[in-house]
């Protein structure tokens, strides 16, 4: 048995959002009677942490603490319009929509604060800690929660804001094919190390090391979670997951969870990552999308590492032991053939 080792590299430019026929997200914000703010969305938190990062963005944009923000997501029957959570678009699109909605809600707060604090609008400012202050008069301030309560109980007004972010449709230039398909692009480079068992065709991933450039990180722990989880997913796509049969007879296709191959805790390689931040011009606070790319960049890196280790170039996924053994056989046959054809007959 020989274990061949190899190293492979991949580099990725990854689009944030899609062109489609226009790509909108909407957000609605309103203050409750208790002075907290409800942010209504139709984008979904799949576990990637959308509710957390949108909570952070909404709190920042409203000038209140995260505890004063409630994120209400994913009832598409009643929520504002959203294209959905895909294409690494949600933080970018929804974040922008929430900032716009927060700006409108802040104007509504200032309308009330002018009366309550008896001050000119131009003298009012948000302290970012849940208060509105009168510039130059530190003793004259009000809690945003109290302003919201006054709006509802004293003035009979709403504190609310509407926001939309829309990536307009970009038609294709018929002459050149040029178009504007996305809002911004994140970048990645991944290096994978593998060991390939030449008897069994099995691949062991030894390490996945990546650098990701993701714009501004709203929540570094969640970004790291995407990267580490994505490395697993990429490795799983590269080497394990398929609904097709591994062997010609359909009887050998996976029928349920227990037969659908995925790597587990035991198969995890060493995963390391570096995150670089070059803020985008159009994302909320400079965001770019990080989700999907983390599952994509490991795949070509692993396939390239297998090629480096074995000389076998695989062009379908997953890379099963069978594909590798057939590739090794083909290489051995080709080598024998080359040897025979160069040996003089006599």
């Amino acid at each position: 048995m020989v274990k061949l080792r190899g190293t492979g590299l991949s580099a990725v430019n990854y689009p944030t959002g899609m062109n489609l026929g226009g790509d909108p997200s909407q957000a609605l914000i309103h203050a409750t009677t208790s002075g907290s703010f409800v942010v209504s969305l139709s984008a979904t938190d799949l576990g990637q942490g959308l509710r957390t990062v949108i909570g952070q963005i909404a709190a920042e944009a409203l000038g209140v603490g995260m505890d004063d923000v409630v994120i209400d997501t994913a009832d598409t029957d009643t929520g504002p319009h959203d294209m959905g959570t895909f294409a690494s678009r949600a933080t970018h699109r929804v974040g922008n929509a929430v900032i716009a909605a927060a700006q409108e809600a802040r104007e509504a707060l200032l309308d009330v604060a002018e009366d309550e604090l008896e001050a000119a609008r131009s003298d009012l400012e948000f302290d970012g800690q849940g208060n509105i202050l009168v510039r130059g008069a530190p003793d004259r301030s009000m809690k945003i929660a109290d302003i919201a309560a006054a709006a509802q109980f004293k003035y009979g007004r709403t504190i609310a804001g509407r926001g939309v972010y829309m990536k307009p449709r970009s038609p294709v230039d018929p002459e050149t094919g040029a178009m504007d398909p996305d809002s911004t692009e994140a970048h990645a480079c991944t290096v994978a190390e593998v060991a390939v068992d030449t008897d069994t065709g099995e691949v062991t991933v030894l390490s996945i090391r990546s650098a990701y450039e993701v714009g501004r990180q709203i929540n570094p722990a969640l970004v790291k979670g995407q990267i580490v989880g994505g490395a697993w997913m990429g490795m799983s796509h590269a080497l394990y997951e398929t609904t097709q049969p591994y062997y010609p007879d359909p009887a050998y296709s996976p029928k349920d969870f227990s037969e659908y191959l995925m790597p587990g805790a035991y198969e995890m390689p060493k995963i390391e990552c570096v995150v670089l931040e070059y803020p985008s011009s159009n994302g909320p606070y400079g965001v770019k999308g990080v989700g999907e790319m983390t599952a994509n960049s490991p795949i070509p890196a692993i396939v390239n590492a297998i090629y480096h280790a074995t000389g076998v170039r695989i062009d379908e996924l997953p890379v099963t032991p069978e594909l590798i053994l057939r590739g090794l056989d083909a290489r051995a046959r080709a080598a024998r053939l080359a040897e025979t054809s160069t040996t003089p007959d006599s």
């Binding site: 580490v228 989880g229 490395a231 997913m233 969870f257 587990g264 805790a265 995963i271």
Partner: peptide, 20 residues
């Protein structure tokens, strides 16, 4: 021993490392 204990449990999000 931790990996052994977790071997029967599937996670599709985290890549297991944070769980370990």
């Amino acid at each position: 021993e931790i990996l052994d204990a977790l071997a029967g449990n599937i996670c599709r999000c985290t890549g297991y490392e944070p769980i370990v």
